[in-house]
Each structure stands twice: as C-alpha cells, then as structure tokens.
Amino acid sequence: MNKIKSAFKNGKAFIPFITCGDPDLETTEQAVYAMKEAGADLIELGIPFSDPTAEGPVIQGANVRALAGGVTTDKIFDMVQRIRANTQIPMVFMTYANVVFSYGSERFIKRAAELGMDGIILPDLPYEEKEEFDPLCRQYEVALISLIAPTSEERIAMIAKEASGFVYCVSSLGVTGVRSGITTNVGAMVKKVKEVRDIPCAIGFGISTPEQAKTMAQYADGVIVGSAIVKLCAQHGKKCVPYVKEYVKSMKDAIRS
C-alpha cells in the first residue's frame, strides 16, 4: 500500500525537507526532482504555517516568505499533482494540525491520498491527540508519522506500538535548526522503539553536515535534514536547485558509505 517502506530499502535513507513555495512553487517542484536524482529516498514537503512553533528561525523565515508569496494548501496540492506525473518517490507532508483541521480533516487527508502522498507529520500532534486524524489517515492509507523526543523516555514504547510509516526521532531539545553537536543518546531512543516493533526510525533536528549525518545514520534507518536545505533556498532563491542537488548528494553519499 504505502511507499514509505520502500524508502528504507536502499540502505540508510536520506530524507530532505523543503518548505513549499520558498521562493516559489516552481522552484520547489524542480528541487524535488533534483533531490530525487541526487539520491533522496523520501521527501518531506513542508506546508507553510503562519505560526510554526516547532521551527527555528531558518524554517520560520521560509514559512513567512512562502505565505507572503501567496502559497496556499490548494496550490501545494496542485504542485503535488504535477510532481506525481513525473516521479513516484515517497513523499510526506510536514505541517501543523490547524492546516489539516481547518481545511476539513477528511477533505485534506482524502485529497492527499488521491494525489499519492504517503504520510503526514504534525509536530503539534502528540500521541494523546492522534485520534483527531489517525482514523482518517488509516481509512485513506496515509501514514500519520509519530515523533519521539529526548524527553519521551517511557512514552516511547506506547508511541512505537501504534506508529505508522516510520518513527521520527527528534535528536535534541528545542526547535529545528542547525546545531554544532547532538548530545542526546539517540541510539538508546531508537533501541527502545525497536524493542517494541520493527519500524523504520529516522533522526531529525539539528543535522546539517555529512559527518553528522554519517554519525546519526549509525544509530537509525534514516536521517532527516531540513534547515540546512531551507537555508540554501533562502540564500540562492530561484537559483537554489543545483546547490540543493549537490548538497543532497553529499549527504546521501556520506550515509551510504
């Protein structure tokens, strides 16, 4: 049913994130193709939100620019439709609960499924509230991705037991963004998941260099990178695609070896 599993079949998975519509949706679309060619295994498409409380300054800035440029959920759906005419690479949305809820939860999830989206990540939806969307996600076969954090501890088993797609392991406290070092024992977090279930685990938050990616890939099935890519989009604007491609290739190469 779901393409997410296949993303973890090609060795360690590299999962880039991009904010849709920064600088514009045409560039985002081209960046998706470029990231796929560069070796990305699964792509996270960020639907911008006015008040992204889990994001650091880099992705906050991208959200502001994308919304100021007139990006809407419907325009992003249209872009996904164009992308799906060209590639079947596994893709998930990353956004906030209100973007889905306000669109009409069923309307949103049904549309995402029809367009061939494979999952949704909502950082403001913890285990306790997943009933809000999970039954619909199961009905339409869109994986609602669960997150675990360094503070989750004994919650990990409960979360892992009911997780879909893959488990998003948040590497550090705080918000998204580049960090010089990751001090959490992510290996122990992943181990707690695997004790309960054999479900892919991908580590995100704070990873930007090939060295970090390589280290993190030892502990998990995949590595997620957001801010470092969004930064390239901010720096190079409409000319960002080759830079993003080169970066994704360097990251995939680092975790492949």
Partner: peptide, 22 residues
Amino acid sequence: MSKGRFGVHGGQYMPETLMNAV
C-alpha cells in the same frame, strides 16, 4: 477524547518534547 476537554475544546496539541512536562 483526550484530557482537559471543555466540550469539544481544549486538549493537548503540543510537541512530544513537552508532553512529559505537561
């Protein structure tokens, strides 16, 4: 329905990082 509800309102729509704190 999760904890802390006032009718359909309320709940705990928070990042996982803060769940143990709340």
